[in-house]
Amino acid sequence: MLCAVNLHAGYRRGVPVLHGIDLEVGAGGALGVIGRNGAGKTCLAQTLTGALPVMDGTVLLGGDDVSGKGSRARVRARLSHVPEGRMIFADLTVRENLEVAAYGAGVKLTAQQLRDVEQRFPILERKAHDRAGSLSGGEQQWLAIGRALVQQPRVIVLDEPSLGLSPVAIDGVAEALVGIREAGVALILMEQNPYLLKAVCDEVLLLDQGRVTRSLDGEAGEQLVAEAYFGG
């Protein structure tokens, strides 16, 4: 569904942060990317979703080359982004946040769709008319994921959704992401939280200084993450 081949990218021209990343995730699959601060996770998330330009290499979405396209075109090709720090619209209501997301993707926010999202995250219905800035961190994360869902995505790239959340809230995020996977949406999850990656992903890539140093899966993967990432 989403495939990156030999991807090079960075924040400034001539200063690449990513050095030849290859990854692939199929429909309903979930790929994790773990790495320390500064490893290039956010850069990778932004390059996949079009917020940063591709310096070299290719991003394929459903077989189509979207490397030269920006965020708007990729959102409209059904690739959504849950950015680091959630980036909700604090002064807009919860419902308005969802409306803007649907507008950005060029889709209508139907009553059915709204019901689907609000069933998954009931807090978004209870606080539909509250300003989003008044939500707790966990609730804001639901909203950020809800915004991606109303865009009717084929793939969602999530950048550290566990950041700043309590363990209970992280459990909730894991449960929700598994549910979204089961609905056939592909997920790419940039994370530092091995528990969340284990709960959601089939395969985890270890990113270090802009390079994928290992591909990890299953129980062996968990052990390798512990060794490679936490030093044993």
């Binding site: 990729r74 982004h81 980036m87 619209f89 604090a90 308005e96 409306e99 803007v100 507008y103 993707a105």
Partner: peptide, 18 residues
Amino acid sequence: IAMRAVHDNPGAAEMLGV
């Protein structure tokens, strides 16, 4: 609503395709 969103958080609006 999208106009207000651009004012609220231009970066987020761009990422959502606005």
